[in-house]
Computed example of a mutant assay.
Amino acid sequence: MNYKLISIDLAKTVFQVAAFNPDNTIAFNRKINRPALLDTLRQCEPTLVVMEACYSANYWGRAIEKLGHTVKLIPARMVKAMLVGNKNDANDAVAIGETAGRPKVSLLRPKTVEQQDIQSLLRIR
């Protein structure tokens, strides 16, 4: 499966995954449980995967990068502005994907374990 972009709304047990075709139409927007996420992404051609920057985004970003995808994180405040309709997982996943296509949005790379260790030490200090 060849997609332009895959956006993921992270949660505790069930993730919402939306895939966008090259013409920016939504190929699918479905719930995927935690164990099946990497298997689902393994079946896709390497593409851009975007997620909201949150607590577990760095961990999942590193795991998804090992599959060959390019992972970018988006600050949550930027996604909020693109949300259309009620706040739910399906709408959040679409908003994440639409935000990634905006020209002035700064996309971040996931932190390495070493960078997270240094960040923890600085915050403790």
Rank of each mutant, 00 (worst) to 15 (best):
K12Q: 13
T13W: 09
F15K: 00
Q16S: 05
V17C: 07
N21G: 01
P22L: 12
P22K: 12
P22M: 14
T25H: 08
T25F: 08
A27T: 07
A27L: 10
A27P: 00
F28I: 15
I32E: 02
I32Y: 02
N33T: 15
R34E: 04
R34C: 09
T40L: 13
Q43F: 06
C44P: 00
C44A: 14
L48T: 15
L48A: 13
V49R: 01
M51H: 06
E52A: 08
A53R: 01
C54S: 07
C54W: 01
Y55N: 11
R62Y: 03
K66W: 03
L67V: 10
H69M: 10
T70S: 09
V71C: 11
V71E: 01
K72F: 07
K72W: 08
L73V: 14
P75S: 12
M78C: 15
K80F: 01
A81Q: 06
A81L: 10
M82T: 06
L83G: 01
L83P: 00
V84K: 11
N86A: 12
K87P: 05
D89C: 11
D89T: 12
A90R: 15
N91W: 09
A93T: 09
A95G: 01
A95H: 05
I96A: 01
I96L: 03
I96W: 02
G97W: 08
A100T: 09
G101I: 04
P103C: 07
P103N: 03
